[in-house]
């Protein structure tokens, strides 16, 4: 069997996969706690509308995608505040708008190749430019994430209490919204929307079943997310499975195993107690 590290495209896939898995897990932890778990879906579809706009308007589609993502993310924030108890509807509304706009505008785009390349990024076909872009993105996002760690932690659990105790909620939310939007728009183009939107949620769900604190939730999410990505790439390389789907399914497997483990552990302690 040839070594997985022998091929440059696999080296890039492993590196980019590792970095994005880490990023998305960190962002996902905050998003899930803010009850916006489907934000990855909504943003990646909105970025598609931005791509179409870019192709139609004659400007760079990558910039179109980022701009659309940022607008969509702020729209979610705005609508979320108006809806109160039903804040999760904000994501659904923006998701629908994104799909609708992308669908209508794709009808006016002349060449389907341009369009599809943004819809289906593939983790095994990453260019050198994209690799560099992801490295820069990773540095910026991880740095801000740790810098704002305490503020984000507070906001994730209770926004109002955070505001009362002096956290600049508006500013922190805005920074975080932009970071998420930019990450999703780049990641969707690089590895595909499926991986981004799934890794934002499933690892966090798995982590929450075993982790005892906010910090350990982040650590567990990152471990699950990274190991699923690397595992999926290895399986794809040696067994010929489609990488995107495999990565997502491994993370779901993690979720199931952790839940079973928790249930078994719970049963044991109850048994002891009785």
């Amino acid at each position: 069997m040839p070594s997985i590290f022998y091929y440059a495209y696999m080296q890039r896939a492993l590196l980019v996969g590792f970095l994005l898995a880490l990023l998305v897990a960190c962002l996902g932890t905050v998003m899930v706690h803010k009850r916006l778990s489907l934000i990855g879906d909504a943003l990646s579809h909105s970025s598609l509308a931005g791509v179409a706009l870019g192709l139609l308007g004659g400007f760079n589609p990558v910039i179109g995608a980022m701009a659309a993502c940022v607008v969509a993310a702020f729209a979610i924030e705005g609508i979320r505040k108006k809806l109160g108890n039903h804040s999760e509807l904000a994501v659904a509304i923006v998701l629908s708008t994104g799909i609708g706009l992308a669908g209508v505008m794709s009808g006016f785009v002349k060449s389907s190749a341009d369009f599809n390349s943004f819809l289906f990024g593939s983790i095994v076909a990453i260019s050198k430019f994209e690799t560099r872009l992801v490295i820069v993105l990773a540095v910026v996002v991880l740095f801000s994430f740790f810098l704002l760690y305490k503020e984000l932690f507070y906001i994730s659990f209770d926004e109002q209490a955070a505001a009362i105790s002096g956290v600049p909620v508006g500013l922190v939310n805005a920074i975080f919204t932009i970071l998420t939007a930019v990450t999703v728009s780049i990641a969707a183009r690089t590895v595909g929307a499926l991986i981004v939107s799934s890794l934002m949620v499933v690892p966090v769900a798995g982590a929450m079943s075993v982790a005892r604190s906010y910090k350990s939730t982040i650590v567990w999410s990152a471990v699950i997310s990274v190991s699923s990505t690397i595992g999926g790439l290895v399986l794809s390389f040696y067994c010929g499975l489609k990488p995107g789907g495999t990565i997502v399914l491994i993370s779901v497997l993690w979720f199931l195993l952790l839940h079973i483990w928790k249930w078994a552990a719970g049963a044991k302690t109850i048994g002891k107690g009785a």
Binding site: Y9, M10, F237, G240, L241, K242
Partner: peptide, 11 residues
């Protein structure tokens, strides 16, 4: 056309 290739096929 239009499918994501897997890593083994690329190799």
């Amino acid at each position: 056309a239009d499918q994501e290739p897997d890593a083994a096929r690329m190799r």
